[in-house]
C-alpha cells in the first residue's frame, strides 16, 4: 500500500448544466507510483471530469455528490484551497489537450516555462532560465535557446506540446494528468509525443493518468487501463489482460471495432447498437 499514489473511490458527480444528470457514477480507480494508467471512453464518458476533479478545477456546474480522491493518502476533496494550491502544479501537474490554447500567445516560451519553477520552487529568474533550457533539451528540442525566446505562434503544434510536457515535468511532480495530449496533433507527431511522455515518465518515476479515447494509444504507453461508459467504470486492469482477455462485451466490441492495438493510429469505430442497449440497461440509463 505504501507505493499507492492516487486512489479514487466511489466518486460520483452530477451536471447541473444538464438538470442534475449523473456524469460520474461510483467511479473507482487507482494509480501506483510510476504507473501509467489509461482512462478510456467515448466522448462525454466523463474522462475529463475525472481529470478535472483530481486537479480540483471542476467547473461550477459540475457537483461532486460522493466519494474520495486520495492523493498520497489525503483526500483532495476535503482539503482547504490553500493546501490544494500548494499541491496543484507542484505535486500534481497537467499536460493539456490543445497546445494551441495552452500557451499564452503574448508571452515568450522561456518566461512561461519559468513560471512554475519560480512560483512553485522559488527559483531565481536566472536559475529558472537555466533549468528551463535544460528541460527543453530533455524533451528533445534541438535549439532550446531559440525556442526560449520564441512566441508560441512561432512553434509547430508538436513543438508546443513538447514545451508543455517540459513545463509539466519541470517541477518534478509525482502525478501528471494528461488529458488527451496528442488528440490535436498529426499522427506522426502523436507517436513521438507519446514516446516522449513515456520516456519522461520513466526518467522521473512519475505516475501518469493518461486520458484518451484511443485503445491503440493505451496499448502503446499504458501499464493499466480504466474503461468508462457514461460515467461508469466498465472494465479495468493491466493493459495486457484487458486487451487480450476482455471480460465485458462492450470492451470486446471496442477492441473488435477499433484498430488492432498493434496499429495504434485510428480512432474508435461504432459499437453495435444491441451491445450499447444492454450496457445502458446494466448501468440503468433510461
Amino acid at each position: 500500500m505504501t507505493d499507492m499514489l492516487l486512489n479514487v473511490t466511489g466518486l460520483s458527480a452530477v451536471s447541473d448544466r444538464e438538470g442534475g444528470l449523473p456524469v460520474l457514477r461510483d467511479v473507482s480507480l487507482s494509480l501506483k507510483k510510476g504507473e501509467v494508467r489509461g482512462l478510456v471512453g467515448e466522448s462525454g464518458a466523463g474522462k475529463s471530469t475525472i481529470a478535472k476533479a483530481i486537479l480540483s478545477i471542476l467547473p461550477r456546474t459540475v457537483r461532486v455528490t460522493g466519494g474520495w480522491i486520495n492523493f498520497k493518502n489525503r483526500d483532495l476533496l476535503a482539503m482547504k484551497p490553500q493546501e490544494l494550491r500548494s499541491i496543484m502544479g507542484s505535486e500534481i501537474a497537467l499536460i493539456p489537450q490543445d497546445p494551441q490554447t495552452a500557451l499564452n500567445p503574448g508571452r515568450r516560451i522561456g518566461a512561461q516555462l519559468a513560471d512554475g519553477l519560480r512560483l512553485k520552487r522559488g527559483m531565481s529568474a536566472k536559475a529558472a532560465e537555466a533549468r528551463a533550457l535544460q528541460l527543453l533539451a530533455d524533451v528533445q528540442i534541438r535549439d532550446p535557446d531559440r525556442v526560449m525566446a520564441s512566441f508560441p505562434h512561432q512553434l509547430s503544434g508538436g513543438m508546443r506540446q513538447r514545451v508543455l510536457i517540459a513545463a509539466a515535468f519541470a517541477v518534478d511532480p509525482e502525478l501528471v494528468v494528461a488529458d488527451e495530449p496528442t488528440t490535436a496533433l498529426d499522427v506522426t507527431v502523436q507517436k513521438e509525443i507519446l514516446r516522449l511522455i513515456r520516456r519522461m515518465q520513466e526518467a522521473h518515476g512519475t505516475g501518469v493518468l493518461f486520458v484518451t479515447h484511443d485503445l491503440g494509444i493505451v496499448a502503446q504507453i499504458c501499464d493499466s487501463v480504466t474503461l468508462l461508459y457514461a460515467g461508469k467504470v466498465i472494465e479495468e486492469g493491466p493493459v495486457r489482460s484487458v486487451l487480450e482477455n476482455p471480460q465485458h462485451a462492450y470492451t470486446r466490441a471496442l477492441i473488435a471495432a477499433g484498430p488492432r492495438y498493434d496499429r495504434p493510429d485510428a480512432g474508435l469505430e461504432p459499437v453495435p447498437e444491441e451491445i450499447l442497449h444492454a450496457l445502458r440497461q446494466e448501468i440503468g440509463i433510461r
Binding site: 493539456p96 490554447t101 512561461q112
Partner: peptide, 24 residues
C-alpha cells in the same frame, strides 16, 4: 487554457489578470 495552467502553477488572480489575460 493558458490561464488555467498558470493558475495551477500558483499564479495569483491579480497576476493572472494583469500578466496573462490583459496583454491578450
Amino acid at each position: 487554457d493558458y490561464v488555467l495552467l498558470a493558475r495551477l502553477k500558483g499564479m495569483s488572480e491579480v497576476r493572472l489578470v494583469l500578466q496573462e489575460a490583459l496583454r491578450n
